[in-house]
Amino acid sequence: MKVFIDQDKCVASGQCVLAAADVFDQRDEDGVVILLNPDPPAELADDVRQAAAVCPALAIRVEEE
């Protein structure tokens, strides 16, 4: 699994962090998403998929390998 984010689309809702805190964080100054791990381990795959699904701005893209 590869994870990609588009910070320009991000609306800083924080849903990704709630779903997968080991993979996503937010910048302190504006809340925009930060990708902590573009290659998350398999045990986090469901959380990452959930984060992408709940992102209101569709700023997260997941590619399955």
Rank of each mutant, 00 (worst) to 15 (best):
E63D: 11
V11G: 02
I34V: 15
C55M: 03
P41L: 12
P41G: 15
D47C: 01
V11E: 05
R49Q: 04
D39G: 09
A57S: 15
D47G: 00
D22Y: 00
E29D: 14
V11R: 07
D25G: 13
A52L: 12
V3G: 10
V62L: 13
I60N: 00
D8C: 00
R49K: 15
V48A: 06
D22W: 05
A51Q: 01
L44K: 14
P40M: 12
E63Y: 13
A42I: 11
P38S: 14
V11P: 00
V48C: 08
V62P: 11
R27H: 10
D46R: 09
S13R: 10
P40L: 10
E64F: 02
D47A: 09
K9E: 02
P38E: 15
N37C: 11
P56V: 10
A12M: 06
D6I: 01
N37W: 07
V3C: 06
E29I: 07
D22E: 15
F24M: 03
L58D: 15
G31F: 06
P41C: 10
Q50M: 12
F24W: 08
G31Y: 09
D6N: 08
K9S: 04
L58F: 13
L18I: 11
N37S: 13
Q50Y: 08
I34C: 11
I34P: 13
D28T: 09
F4D: 10
L18N: 07
E29R: 07
P40E: 10
D46Y: 01
V17F: 13
Q15T: 03
E43C: 03
L35C: 11
K9A: 07
V62F: 10
E29Y: 12
A51W: 04
F4N: 09
K2V: 10
K9W: 01
